[in-house]
Design a protein around this nucleic acid. Structure first.
Length: 186
DNA sequence: CTTTGGATCGTCT
DNA sequence: GACGATCCAAAGG
């Protein structure tokens, strides 16, 4: 699902942005997933129906958002890591005073949540029915034929999997691919 | 452009 | 009580 979400459009009532970078998190099989050790109050949304939005709080100050992709009970999710702003740039700039350039508005998982005003109240939103005025649209732009691919960013575990995908050359992509982690020897 | 360290608190051990 | 699926400003090249 993750590469198929590239070039789709994340939209609210007054804002829209193209998804240009994602990461997959594979529940019980993935030590980097919040769901690796089973269901908790925090990750409960990931165990719900596909098409729901899983929003979590991290580093004491940031929100990040995922699309739930697994059948109910199977905690699969795709993290939105970067978007290219299309509509509502003024509103996004107002939400992100630290952004010097427009490419700073959505070039990171917590940045894009700030730009869209996504926080706790969006956790569990139904992206298909748009019950909280947030949804994913297809405007006819297909996913890249040959997406960029790399290890995931910011992890201490699960660093081998190539589960990050991005639109090659897009200036909103958050950063270049992480290098291989140092291997511990005994 | 890259590197580095500090901020800050909900969550699970 | 330790640690994040991060961001930012500051400093150096």
């Amino acid at each position: 699902m993750a590469p198929d979400l590239l070039n789709k459009v994340l939209a609210t009532a007054d804002r829209a942005a193209r998804i240009v970078e994602v990461e997959a998190y594979a529940g019980a099989e993935d030590p980097a997933s919040h769901a690796y050790r089973g269901r908790t109050a925090r990750n409960a949304t990931m165990f719900g129906p596909p098409g729901d939005l899983y929003v979590y709080f991290t580093y004491g100050m940031h929100w990040c958002a995922n699309a739930v992709c697994g059948d109910p009970g199977v905690a699969m999710a795709v993290l939105f890591r970067a978007v290219s702003p299309m509509v509502g740039l003024e509103a996004m700039r107002a939400m992100r005073p630290a952004a010097r350039r427009d490419r700073d508005l959505g070039s990171g998982p917590a940045k894009l949540c700030q730009a869209f005003g996504i926080e706790r109240s969006f956790d569990g939103a139904d992206l298909v029915r748009a019950d909280r005025r947030i949804t994913i649209l297809d405007d006819g732009v297909p996913p890249p034929r040959r997406p960029g691919r790399s290890r995931r960013i910011g992890l201490q575990v699960g660093t081998d999997a190539l589960w990050r995908w991005y639109v090659p050359g897009d200036p909103n992509v958050s950063r270049s691919a992480p290098s291989a982690p140092a291997t511990r020897e005994g």
